[in-house]
């Protein structure tokens, strides 16, 4: 399947600790690489314009919007997605906190919320509920799970 006469480019990167080598169109976003090329559908496409956060992943530990990143620019990087969190049957404790606090309804924004929260905790900013809410504001939710999301993050982070 070729979309254009453009060059295709080789790309090597790690996703959830596993090395991947792919050949892609340069215009492929990281989000489309994950979903369309690799079948990793846990990372969601909510707006494709960086305005909803549903596609949040960690690249070298930092949370970014995968829809606003070119895949080819992630050469050599370490990408973490929602699929990399649970250990077999055992949920990651933050995932478990989301279940316990009913921090999801439709579940479409949920992977992005969880990855964003992990990024936030890595940044050392999950200090109190108000701070968590401010720093999580790049992740929209339309069902209205917000207070439970913040409660789940605070419980996991010990804030």
């Amino acid at each position: 399947m070729t979309d254009s006469s453009r060059q295709r480019v080789a790309l090597a990167l790690a996703i959830n600790g596993r090395r991947h080598r792919v050949t892609i169109e340069p215009s492929t976003t990281l989000l489309d690489l994950l979903r369309d090329e690799l079948g990793l559908f846990g990372t969601k496409k909510g707006c494709d314009m960086g305005a909803c956060g549903a596609c949040t992943v960690l690249v070298d530990g930092r949370r970014i919007n995968a829809c606003l990143a070119l895949a080819v620019m992630q050469e050599g990087r370490d990408v973490q997605t929602i699929e990399g969190l649970a250990e077999g049957e055992a949920l990651h404790p933050l995932q478990q906190a989301f279940v316990e606090h009913d921090a999801l309804q439709c579940g479409y924004c949920t992977p992005g919320q969880i990855m964003s929260a992990l990024g936030l905790i890595g940044e050392g900013r999950a200090t109190d509920a108000a701070g968590i809410a401010e720093q999580m504001s790049g992740n929209l939710c339309r069902c209205g799970a917000h207070p439970n999301i913040v409660a789940a993050i605070a419980a996991y982070a010990g804030a």
Partner: peptide, 10 residues
Amino acid sequence: RYEAALKVRG
């Protein structure tokens, strides 16, 4: 929530 574990795993 019945399907929560599935959804938090993506």
